[in-house]
Amino acid sequence: MAQSITEDSVRAALTDRLKASHVEVRDMSGGCGQAFTSLIVSPEFVGKNSLKRHRLVNAALKDEIAQIHAWSAKCQTPEEYEKEKAATGGNEGPPLDGTAGGEVTGVSQ
């Protein structure tokens, strides 16, 4: 029943379900495919605070998140994304806070 979850499947789901204009998904599991971090840019975030944005993402990816070990997201509106890109000359991409060099550490359950 459970289709395996990949960077591509998560990206496709977010693009489809949140009408995201830009999505970056990174596997931070170190290979076991159970932990992902993401940068999601969607017009659906406009006018919503951080908690509401994350709740929207959690709802859109309910089944996927229930199956994986770790999930991290940065949620930006297209305007915020462009502004940050212009200000920093690039974009940081998905958040890596709480990881060790981009990989999840801790209990594997």
């Binding site: 770790a70 991290s72 806070d97 709480g98 990881t99 060790a100 999840v104 550490t105 801790g106 209990v107």
Partner: peptide
Amino acid sequence: TPQCGFSRAS
């Protein structure tokens, strides 16, 4: 003694 990086960061 946090057992997970996200708990540690928090």
